[in-house]
Design a protein around this nucleic acid. Structure first.
Lengths: 364, 364
DNA sequence: AAAATTTAGCAACAGCGTTGCGTAATAGGG
DNA sequence: CCCTATTACGCAACGCTGTTGCTAAATTTT
């Protein structure tokens, strides 16, 4: 990882992103709010607000007259000013969402994909879906790009699908490049779980600490948000959390090892013992907490959300039992706030994050 | 986590740190080297070099005449210009090292600590050890501070020892504060494993990607370097890697759960089966790789370094077997380059890193 | 000796957040 | 009704950053 140089352009983008983060979390805000949240001087905030207003990203809506003194101008984010498309590519379905600048899902649609679909088939499905959702001329100008979340292995930096598990026609496909050509929009490619945790982080704003998203849906994966950014690892391969061994003498997994979390969980689920399945996941989650000391664990995925009342209490109980040893620890366990849209919406937010989030100093 | 504002002071510190990182890895360097490594303009590099030279951190040593054109000035880091003390506080010993600006351990000393030592006893041992090692008036002026690495739980942001495992007199001790008073030097407190991974990162320079240090020494812990910085988690408690479950029906661990990596490893080691002990560690390391996708795994700790020829091949083999599934992955497995000094030296480098490393934008 | 090539730095510049200070808008007291 | 205190806000100057344009210096090649 080579670090990139920092110049005044970085300063501008960074502090603008701080203000945008305030606007995204607190729907209405004024200058003093931003000053307190960021530590910038009032004058600096005025300049940033002027720039953002000129770009149409925020606008004054009101004045606050709390008592003595000149009234303060109340600003708000303009959700309609920018949009992004998010795509969740699964084995048999394509889910598309339209997300606005505030992080709200404005439209959502699911369409089937052909069995063992090819890259051209996906591109066509993407195109027609996007046209149906945001084809109008008014929206088109405010579309910032398309985020695609799918299973790995892949290379997000170069936009390559290395070889998606269970899909025959997806080995070393330069999906970002061909999709940008086909769609005429900037495209970002990432693992599904990384997109999912981005959605949670984007919605929670700057107060979102280290966190993980546990996804149970055709396998078990984990997305990580560490140190204020998505963690993808050295080869965009982080998150193969389902293939960590929790039972040395357990059944053989498809990956060749024995007692992976995923296969142990699968056996329990297949036997209809969802309580045990949930406990297995809970063990994995506590393993993560021990290793990474997370502030927030988000549960997601179609298979998990089918039994939320089983998984959530099991994981919460395990986390609390473990936290009791160190009574000053606190970790929140929640269900994904976006439900089935989590991955697609997160992919869209990754596009918005590239434009209006904290700029990166250490590129890919 | 509230983000901190970025101003021009940050720019200066950041780009200076980039140049210092070049100087630390390439012992001799010239302007064009830095230009290529950082992306800064030649003129900007000249300004940074002028500042660093004025501070005595680097100096011109030579000129290079490669052929046609004006000779280039060759600079070098001045190792003697700054020092830091590192302390590794273990249950029965105190290891102190003197590290120079280049990251070289100049002196190393181990002294015994009283059984169940108290905070005042540690402070006295620190003081006399530091006086013996760097008491001279010439060195004193160039001492930037003291780094302390010890077992947790602790709070590095506030410099508190929450309650070191196995030490009776260490509950909620504000060690940083009292040590700074007692020693008259800036003090940084951190977990031993975090200090250890900092040493590796500091020595490898900017090319060091995501990495973990696995430490086996009175328990099993992990230190993490993710995204260009140490990962400590939400409560400085990341790294309790030994207390991740790898055997659901395994023996009961001191932590209350069953089949923790640490207790399974311990049973194998106690039975004299070091091969199995090493294989258990290897399983844990592969679990980490699956989860975090690390570029580098460093093995350290007194108990591990007692059997390097057992552990290193076992872990390497397991990593390679796993990497074969995804043949484009590559992870290096090495022994700690600093041996027994790793923790203490890393603690010292944390002090140097605070002054001459990449400044943080997200505090705590 | 002249030309070509490479390195280095001076000077002017644009842009960032900061500082100093003046102005606008409100409520409350005399 | 006027005056004052209070609060919000911005213009202008400033210090500092990295960048750009251009000149000077040092060396090899022709």
């Amino acid at each position: 990882m080579t670090r990139i140089t920092a110049d005044v352009r970085f300063l501008r983008g960074y502090n603008q992103a701080l203000v945008m983060a305030v606007g995204r979390t607190a729907r209405r805000f004024e200058r003093s709010t931003v000053v307190e949240a960021t530590g910038l001087t009032p004058q600096a905030v005025s300049k940033v607000i002027a720039r953002l207003s000129a770009a149409g990203l925020i606008r004054p809506t009101d004045v606050r007259r709390p008592g003595v003194g000149k009234p303060a101008v109340v600003y708000e984010l303009v959700p309609d000013s920018r949009y992004a498309i998010g795509a969740h590519v699964a084995r048999r379905t394509l889910r598309l969402v339209l997300v606005d600048l505030a992080g709200t899902v404005r439209h959502s649609a699911v369409s089937p994909l052909p069995g063992d679909f090819t890259p051209p088939q996906l591109l066509d499905a993407l195109r027609s879906g996007i046209d149906a959702m945001a084809g109008g001329p008014d929206l088109r100008g405010r579309l910032t790009g398309v985020g695609i979340g799918m299973i790995g292995p892949l290379d997000h930096a170069h936009g390559l699908v290395r070889g998606a598990h269970g899909l025959r026609h997806w080995h070393d496909v330069p999906l970002r490049e061909i999709a940008e050509k086909h769609l005429g929009l900037p495209v970002h490619l990432d693992k599904d779980v990384t997109a999912g945790i981005t959605a949670e982080a984007w919605r929670h704003g700057a107060t979102f600490g280290d966190a993980a998203l546990i996804m149970i849906e055709s396998g078990i994966g984990g997305g990580f948000w560490l140190g204020g950014a998505a963690h993808r690892g050295a080869h965009t391969n982080a998150g193969e959390f389902g293939h960590t061994v929790v039972d040395l003498d357990g059944p053989r997994c498809v990956c060749g090892r024995h007692g992976c979390l995923e296969i142990v969980h699968q056996h329990a689920a297949d036997a209809g013992d969802m309580a045990r399945a949930a406990r297995v996941v809970a063990v994995g989650v506590v393993n993560l907490l021990q290793t990474l000391d997370l502030a927030h664990v988000v549960l997601a995925g179609a298979d998990l959300l089918r039994h939320p009342d089983t998984y959530l209490p099991a994981v919460t109980a395990a986390v609390q039992a473990d936290a009791r040893r160190a009574n000053w620890l606190s970790t929140r366990v929640t269900l994904s706030s976006l439900g089935a849209d989590a991955i697609a919406a997160g992919a869209a937010m990754q596009i918005l994050d590239q434009h209006y989030g904290i700029p990166e100093l250490a590129p890919t």
